[in-house]
Design a protein around this nucleic acid. Sequence first.
DNA 1: TCCGCGTTGCAGGC
DNA 2: GCCTGCAACGCGGA
Length: 533
Amino acid sequence: MAEMNGLMWFRKGLRVHDNPALSHAARSARLLYPVFVLDPRFLRPDPSAPSPGSARSGLNRIRFLLESLSDLDSSLRRLGSRLLVLKGDDPADVILKALKEWKIGEICYEFDTEPYALAQDKRIKDFACTSGIKVFSPVSHTLFDPAEIIKKNGGKPPLTYQSFIKIAGQPQPPILQTFSCLPPVGNAGACEFLDVPSMEELGYGDVGQEGFSPFHGGESEALKRLKESLEDKKWVANFEKPKGDPSAFLKPATTVLSPYLKFGCLSSRYFYKCLQDVYADVKKHTSPPVSLVGQLLWREFFYTVAFGTPNFDQMKGNKICKQIPWSNNEELFVAWREGQTGYPWIDAIMIQLKKWGWMHHLARHSVACFLTRGDLFIHWEKGRDVFERLLIDHDWAINNGNWLWLSCSSFFYQYNRIYSPISFGKKYDPNGNYIRHFLPVLKDMPKEYIYEPWTAPMSIQVKANCIIGKDYPKPVINHDFEMKECRRRMGEAYALNRSAELPSEEDLNCLRRKFEDEAMAPQRRNLKQKLLS
DNA sequence: TCCGCGTTGCAGGC
DNA sequence: GCCTGCAACGCGGA
């Protein structure tokens, strides 16, 4: 019999469908408190941040979260409950207080593999253990339990996609039953129940509508988007990720379900099941790694490796990460971050990131390669931070995994394969429509020059109302030159990683100084100068 | 220890 | 759209 009070703690998993923690809580609680805690770590406005938002999140993701919370609140209200928004300096402290105040007998929350959540959860579990409070914390954010996969693989996470697939097996099915009602909410006691705040209430009153993403949060929006994507069965069956067009922005080449998976507005298990249903209906379909199911499995792959690798989100102390003496160049880094490199393809992508909080996977590849091993030779952690803050679908495991991949620090090691900031985009969008949209300053540049506007004769620049060096920057580096430099440096860095178990800080600094000296050598400097003028 | 293989490079040829 | 040469990596399995 349901005799005790329950607390359903929402963190990710902002949904009612396929939510094992909520189902369990609904069954076992007399009074049920559905809680979300506003975390100042992610939400507090930071005026010193490079763009509006908090230190850790841009406005687009904050807004996406609020929309998701409002939608969840509406769904809970339809079931006779509501979302109780709480606030405090530290979410774990807030939950501990609520557990005591409301005499909670069982707390339910979706298991989260990220280090930040794990540290929080440990405090909750320790308290619950000593106070006789039951904890129900199922794995439901992912298709598989990362810990189980690691166990099956002999205690280590599989480091290739194929070896992951071999070991993974069949995922957990989603819960398909729906609720007719939820247990009633108890009294607040000494806690304060808040409504889902607006952007203004969070302190983002004067930011206007500038650059807001076309994608909106919430479970309803996620399920609508899923339905729309799945309606075109032929498209689902023939989906091949690498063939997608990164320059498509009016109708993106992918589902754009990633932000909904990130916040758990969409259950990956439900998505997987829906895809299987479509596959059952069509004669032929693509397969992992390129298929849509393959994309879900990439997510699982990165979650598993991230969970099983200490210091996954950094180079230092990360055993699967090549130790590479990346250079420090704040000026070039800021040019990349702000979309001011002078390479329109790169800059347009960075502006799309700022404005929309989303860009196509291959577009992310282009700019990540450019920042790290392809052109600027800047640390992947710097780029990771920018993506982490601005992407609406930012996911700790996937973002770090992809930066490790693109910088040839782990998973992928063919550092000769470098994306061209000129020809890669041109291949998909020869007219430069994508660039014209996100960099309107170049909208009248003839297509012959739009990917390399610095080569346009002055008469053309005048006619296009865009003088290079005045209205739009000159290229900050010469790609043909820097690409070769990067290849050579990567070769030397790899050699260092081969000869020692893990190169020491000293080895790395030594090689870094060598790269710096080479770059400063008069001959090279003159050549660079010549190439840029 | 060796070999096959790997979601997504580019330029050039056909 | 498909091939090759470019220069060449490490993981996983045998």
